[in-house]
Amino acid sequence: MAAAARRILEANAYLTLATADAAGRPWATPVWFAVRDLREFVWVSRPSRRHSENIAARAEVALAVYDTTTPVGDATAVYAEGLAEPVPEDAIDDALAVYNAGCEASGLRPWAEGSVTGAAPHRLYRAVASHLWVLDEREDRVEVY
Rank of each mutant, 00 (worst) to 15 (best):
Y79L: 15
L63C: 00
P71Y: 11
S45K: 07
D90N: 12
D94N: 00
D90W: 08
R58D: 04
V61W: 09
W32C: 06
V44P: 04
A91R: 08
G82K: 03
I92T: 02
V78Q: 09
D67T: 10
T69E: 12
A59H: 11
D67C: 13
A59M: 04
W32H: 12
V78L: 03
E53I: 07
P47A: 12
L38T: 12
S45M: 06
E85Y: 05
E60L: 13
V35N: 10
P88C: 04
S48I: 12
R39N: 07
E40N: 13
I92C: 01
A56D: 13
A75C: 14
R36Q: 10
L38Q: 10
P86A: 10
G82R: 05
A84Q: 01
L38M: 13
D94K: 05
F33A: 01
V42T: 09
D67K: 14
R39S: 03
V61R: 05
A80T: 05
P86C: 11
V72K: 10
V65F: 05
R39C: 10
W43Y: 04
F41T: 04
R39V: 08
P47W: 10
R39L: 06
R50T: 08
N54A: 00
D67L: 13
P47N: 12
A75F: 15
V78D: 07
T76R: 14
A56E: 10
L38W: 08
P71E: 13
V65L: 05
R58N: 03
E89P: 02
F41I: 01
V42M: 09
E53Y: 03
A91F: 06
A77P: 02
F41S: 05
A84F: 01
A56H: 12
T76C: 14
T68W: 09
D74S: 15
D90Y: 09
A84C: 04
E40L: 07
I55M: 11
E53T: 06
V65P: 10
D94C: 02
A75Q: 15
T70G: 14
N54F: 07
D74V: 13
P88L: 02
A56V: 06
D94T: 03
D90L: 08
L63H: 01
L38G: 14
W43D: 00
I92P: 04
A34F: 00
V78C: 09
P88E: 06
E40M: 11
D94F: 05
V44E: 07
A84W: 06
V72F: 15
A59Y: 08
V44S: 07
L83W: 11
P47H: 13
A84K: 06
V78I: 04
R58G: 01
V87R: 01
A80K: 01
H51E: 07
T69R: 14
T76S: 12
E40C: 11
A77G: 07
R46E: 14
W43S: 04
E60I: 06
E53C: 06
P71A: 15
R58C: 03
A77W: 00
L83K: 08
A56M: 06
R50M: 09
F41M: 02
A75I: 15
Y66C: 05
